[in-house]
C-alpha cells in the first residue's frame, strides 16, 4: 500500500520530505511538496523546509514510492510485541539497585 496523497492526475507529482535537523540525528518526516523531478524536489525542500536553519540534510522520496503497512491489519501486524516483556530492561527487577547494570 503506498502512502496517501499521490495522484497520477497531477502535473507535478507529490514528494515526501525528511529533514535531518542536526548531525547525529535521524532524518524526520516534515511534510510534502510538489516538484517535477528529484533534482527540483530536493531544492524545493531546501527552500521550503529549511528557511530558518531547520536542517543540515534533506531527503526527498516520491510519495508513490513509499510502502506503508495496512492499517486494517493493524491488530495482527503490531500485536506480537505485547507480552514479550523480557525485551525490556525494566522486566528484570531483581537486579534493581545493583550498580552499573
Amino acid at each position: 500500500m503506498t502512502t496517501p496523497g499521490d495522484s497520477a492526475a497531477e502535473i507535478w507529482p507529490l514528494w515526501e520530505v525528511f529533514v535531518r535537523s542536526n548531525r547525529g540525528l535521524s532524518h524526520v518526516h516534515v511534510g510534502s511538496l510538489h516538484a517535477p523531478d528529484e533534482t527540483l524536489a530536493v531544492r524545493n525542500a531546501r527552500d521550503l523546509y529549511t528557511r530558518r536553519s531547520e536542517g543540515v540534510s534533506v531527503w526527498v522520496v516520491p510519495a508513490a514510492a513509499i510502502t506503508t503497512s495496512d492499517p486494517d491489519a493493524k491488530g495482527a501486524f503490531f500485536e506480537s510485541p505485547a507480552g514479550k516483556n523480557y525485551r525490556h530492561a525494566s522486566y528484570y527487577s531483581k537486579s534493581e539497585g545493583v550498580k552499573h547494570l
Binding site: 496517501p4 496523497g5 495522484s7 492526475a9 497531477e10 502535473i11 507529490l14 511534510g31 510534502s32 511538496l33 510538489h34
Partner: peptide
C-alpha cells in the same frame, strides 16, 4: 503545507 495535508485525504492540489 495545508494543501499537502488535504492531499492525504484524497483531494489533489490541482
Amino acid at each position: 503545507y495545508l494543501y499537502s495535508a488535504a492531499q492525504t485525504l484524497g483531494a489533489t492540489r490541482d
